[in-house]
Amino acid sequence: MKLIVAIIQPYRLEHVKEELYKMNVNLLTVSEVLGHGRQKGITEIYRGIKESGNLLRKIRIDIAVNEEFVETTIKAIIKGAKTGETGDGKIFVLDLKDCIRIRTEERGPVAIG
């Protein structure tokens, strides 16, 4: 089991969701986060005072998958999120120790899908 964490551009979310559905990955958690990578955010100006290095809005997607879905999910995220510009984001893959479905108390791979 893996936990796939993707940080993407907000406006690519719809595309990523579409690609994931195509690959039968239907369970995901989306949250709004702030951050920046190498491009150092954007300069905001308030009454002439420049606030540089402000954090950019990003979308974080968390998907727990069984081993056979790892590559499919990564490919789907890339397909939906990639524009070739700086700021397209990152994907992190983490080992997932356990997974429990609260309703049935099932554990492990069976609880993921």
């Binding site: 551009q9 406006y11 709004e32 986060v33 702030l34 954007i42 300069t43 905001e44 100006i45 308030y46 809005r57 510009e85």
Partner: peptide, 21 residues
């Protein structure tokens, strides 16, 4: 296109209407 995705607040005025934090 990029400015449109970013939104007019940031791209045209370098301000944001709402902060997340």
């Amino acid at each position: 296109e990029k400015e449109e995705f970013m939104g007019l607040d940031l791209s045209q005025h370098h301000e944001t209407g709402y902060t997340l934090m």
